[in-house]
Structures are given as C-alpha cells and as structure tokens.
Design a protein around this nucleic acid. Structure first.
Lengths: 231, 231
DNA sequence: GCATATTTGTCCGTATGTATA
DNA sequence: CTATACATACGGACAAATATG
C-alpha cells in the first residue's frame, strides 16, 4: 500500500497554497475513484498517515471532508471505510439524477445551446472505446452528464451532482463489468446531443429519461448479484 | 457570548451517541440559523472553544464540517467566519430551488399525495403570523418547501436541499426585514397546497415558479441595498 | 517601516473509551 | 475475562502568519 501513496513531507516544506488536509483529500479521492481503494476498504489512520507523512489530526480532517462527500463512511470508534453502496443507494442516485438532469434539459432557454462540452465528452468516449478502455468509456459518460448539468449554469447544482456522480463510480467499481456497463450508452449520448443540436428539448428529455431508467436497471441487476444479501 | 453557549463538559460524562465535534456543530449551526452569529462574524477558536469547553482540535473538526456545509468560510491563517452571501450566491440558490422544487412537483405520480407535512408547515406559519413572529413565519416557509422536496422521497435530494435552505437563511439574516420578506408567502403556500390537494400538478408547478421568481426579486432588491458594493 | 501580541497551523504525547480476537 | 488495537479527545508545544500599536 505504502508504495503508491507518495510522501507529502517534501511538499509540506515548500509553500503549499492549499492546506495539507485538502491535498491529502485530493490524493485519497483519486485513489478511491480509480478503484485502488475499493468499496469496503478500511482506511487506517496510522498506516495512511504514516505513508503520506502527515499527522493524525491532519488526516482526520481529510477523512471528514471525504465523509461529507459520502465517499467514506465513519463508524464511531471503528474508523472510516470506503463506502459500500446499497441497492437503495443506487436507486436513489438515479432518482436524483433523473430529477435534476431532466429538469436541466427542460429548463433550457431558446437554442442554440453551448454544446462544446457535451460533444467533447462524446469524442472522449469514442476514443476510449476504440482503444478498448471501457473504464475510460465510463468516465467519459460521466463527463457527458456532468456537462449536461453544467448547461444549467448553476454552481450549486454542479457541486451537488458532482458528489452524486462520485458516488456512482463506487457502484461501477462493485459491478466491475465495464464494457457491458458503459458501451451501450455512447450511442445514446450521441442521440441526446443531436436532439439538443437541433433544439428539440422535449425529445432530448425523453431520451435522457429512457437512458437513466435503462442504466439503473442494468446496474441494479448486476449489483444485486455482487453485493448479495448483505447490501 | 459565553452565556448562550452551553458547556458540554457534563454531556461528555453521559453516554453520547454522537461525537463531540458533531454536537458542537449542531450547536453552532443553530446559533447561525437563528442569527446569534450573524454573517461576517469571526468565530475565534479560543473564545468558542473556551465557552463550550472543548479542545481546539475538536472545535476545528466542527469548523470543517460547517465549512463544508457552506455556512462558514475558512481564510488561511485568519480563521473562520460566518458566510456572507453575494448577490450571485442568492441568485444561484434560487436557480437551484427552482430547478429542483419544480422538478419534484412535475415528477409526482398520480394523486392523492401525502400532504400532511405541507399542511403542518402552513399551520405553523399561520400560528407564527398571528403572534407577529415574522422570523418564525420565515422558518415555517422554509419548512413548507422542505416538505415539498420530501415528496420526491429521495434521501440525496433532501440532503442537498437542506444545505441550500440553510444558506438561504444567511441571506434572510442580512436582509432583516422579516415581515416584508415572509408574510406574503403564507397565502401563496396555501394556494400551492390546495392545487396539490385537488391533484393539479401543473397549476402547482406554475404557482411555485411564480413564487420563487417573486421571492428572489424581493430578496435581491433589499439585499443589494444592504451589502452594497462589497458583495 | 518596525516590534509586539495574538491567533492560527501543525504536530505530538497521553488518557480514556470502545470494539474485537 | 483479558489483551490488543484503535478511535476519541485533551492539553501542550512551536512555527508561521496576522493584527496592533
């Protein structure tokens, strides 16, 4: 474990613009997102603090940040663990996505819209698919929907959904069938993008709703098999 | 200051289910919500830690929690302050409210709906108005809209909006014209409730959108005068 | 501009409580 | 039941930044 966690002692000597705790959070968030700390892993204060060369108090502040982002769960007197989502969590994530993402599309003004971010995410997904990088396809799909939310031009809505999408990654790591999970949605993202390009909000919203319903069904189906009865 | 901040030393001896830091956060959150710590106030580690009888490290964990809820802002080497919202913040809060609250109403299934929470909040507002407790009317209005969001039955949406409504209170404290700010909306909440009671989602959504637009206009109008150019 | 006091940032050592083998 | 491991919380220390005179 220690090898992959770069020691921060050097950086600390230099002038750090952000606090140590935030930099630690950034590192841990990446490790969780990329699956290096899979759901269920316990993050010991001692071993991680030692590996990163930061004190317990500093590390605890990082844990607090990530706990509030719902990536870690804190059990009193037992420590922090990478969150293991229940099937109900996954359903609620998609409930929230459907509510917000459809509302964003519906609330768009008159076309044309600034769709560069969306088509960029589509390109990113196609490129990853060509290389057989299915996890990359999953990342690109999430980017697509983040860009979709960004069309609402609301800082709070963005941040709100940022955390929801981070949670969604946790579910993807449990499922761990990236091609089956992500490939079908490249084409559907394209369809949504095209509807928006011609200014057909209603069609885009319908496609989006169908997308989310199907995606939820597929994730939950595999998810139940994985987490079994304990989730 | 010290008189209003109850010492926690006694509670610590008793069986506490939650951590000290969380209980401290609860206390500070209430104080901020009720305006005892108005926006802009600096929260000194020494004085508050002393008043509550907790150590600096514990208090700093509370500050982290509340900072992440956007109620406090942290300035490096200067400490934490109760957030002062800008006009842009207020506009974004209402943008988010409109997006989510309208989507909740639109996404309701077939009537009848469980509207006990909503009518309870209406009663609460009427009672407060009879007693001339206009801040209480504001609290009741926020309850009404929290209950409205709760109709979506989504844990994440609830939590998300809980933090948005907490921020909204910060704006109300800056404005500080509670009667003018809250009284007109009792009747409009009633109208929304009645539309939902007869199952007319579309009318309810329209009333809600108008409500939010008017409320934003009124808050911003007074807000600009208060914060002036520095916001 | 300078010197001083205050406050925060970070880390340590330790005592206590809690869960688990 | 005991022992171990860990988390919680406290108090103290010192450096660094900031505020004050």
């Amino acid at each position: 474990m220690t090898e992959q966690l770069r020691d921060l002692s050097d950086d600390r000597a230099l002038l750090g613009r952000t606090s140590t705790a935030e930099r630690v959070s950034d590192i841990l968030r990446s490790r969780i997102a990329e699956g290096y700390f899979p759901p269920g892993t316990r993050l010991s204060e001692d071993s991680i603090g030692g590996a990163l060369g930061v004190s317990r108090n500093t590390l605890r502040e990082s844990f607090r940040l990530l706990t509030h982002e719902r990536l870690l769960v804190h059990e009193l007197n037992r420590g922090v663990f990478v969150r293991v989502l229940t099937v109900e969590d996954v359903e609620d994530i998609y409930r929230t996505r459907r509510l917000v993402e459809c509302a964003v599309v519906r609330g768009l003004g008159e076309p044309p819209y600034g769709l560069d971010g969306l088509s960029g995410a589509v390109d990113e997904g196609r490129r990853a698919a060509r290389e057989g990088d299915w996890k990359g396809v999953g990342t690109a799909n999430i980017h697509f929907h983040k860009e979709l939310v960004a069309l609402a031009a609301s800082e709070r809505t963005d941040e709100l959904m940022r955390s929801v999408f981070a949670e969604l990654r946790l579910a993807f790591h449990v499922v761990d069938e990236p091609q089956r999970l992500h490939e079908p949605y490249i084409a559907r993202n394209v369809a949504i993008l095209e509807a928006l390009q011609v200014g057909d909000r209603e069609k885009a919203e319908g496609l989006l709703a169908g997308y989310l319903d199907d995606s939820l069904k597929r994730v939950v189906e595999v998810y139940r098999r994985r987490v079994g009865e304990d989730g």
